[in-house]
């Protein structure tokens, strides 16, 4: 009887020790994993696919829409592609001609382009728009507000937004014309 009790106690003790050690080890390892992860994870953008695209309101620079402001939320009901770029970015320059071409095709399907330039120099920007004969709206984000809002780190970056104002995809690289077409087809309003 005594022996049994002792054995029972021993068993309990062993189990308690196991729980105690496992839980302490668990906490320590979890803290390690967290530290390594949070130190090495890539800069996360605040908004991603599935989120509502945050609204902004900026001055138009394209003479086609002279002296108007553009507010993103006004474009609801249309598919919207936001393109972040600036005049000194040469990959962006490569894209410009076919962006213009593509715009002409997709405008009638209910898609709007918004080119958000993070240029500081309005004159340089206007000259650029003229030289490429751009017909889509170009807005200037000279305080970096919209760029920061969308956590843009690379140029060009494109945000595809559907008719409900929801982000479908963010692409942070130069696109080929057919690639751009595929992405645009996804946001064509029904």
């Amino acid at each position: 009887m005594k022996l049994e009790k002792a054995r029972e106690r021993k068993k309990n003790k062993k189990r308690n020790r196991y729980i105690y050690r496992s839980s302490i080890l668990f906490v320590l390892i979890a803290a390690t994993v967290f530290a390594v992860y949070s130190n090495n994870k890539p800069e996360k953008s605040t908004y991603g696919a599935g989120d509502d695209a945050p609204d902004f309101k900026l001055q138009q620079l394209n003479e086609v829409f002279a002296d108007t402001t553009l507010q993103l939320s006004d474009l609801q009901g249309k598919g919207v592609m936001i393109n972040f770029w600036n005049t000194s970015c040469s990959p962006c320059e490569v894209e410009m001609p076919f962006l213009e071409e593509t715009y002409e095709t997709y405008r009638d399907k209910g898609i709007e382009f918004v080119a958000v330039s993070i240029d500081v120099n309005e004159f340089v920007l206007s000259k650029y728009i003229q030289s490429f004969g751009l017909s889509f709206p170009v807005v200037q984000d000279n305080s970096d507000q919209v760029k920061n809002l969308y956590s843009v780190t690379k140029l060009p970056s494109k945000v595809f937004i559907n008719e409900d104002g929801e982000i479908v995809e963010i692409v942070e690289k130069v696109m080929k014309p057919d690639e751009l077409g595929t992405h645009l087809d996804e946001i064509v309003p029904n």
Partner: peptide
């Protein structure tokens, strides 16, 4: 990551 893990192991060793 390996330097961080090294420091973390020192931390674990310290606690235990």
């Amino acid at each position: 990551w390996w330097y961080m893990i090294l420091i973390a192991l020192i931390g674990i060793s310290l606690v235990i």
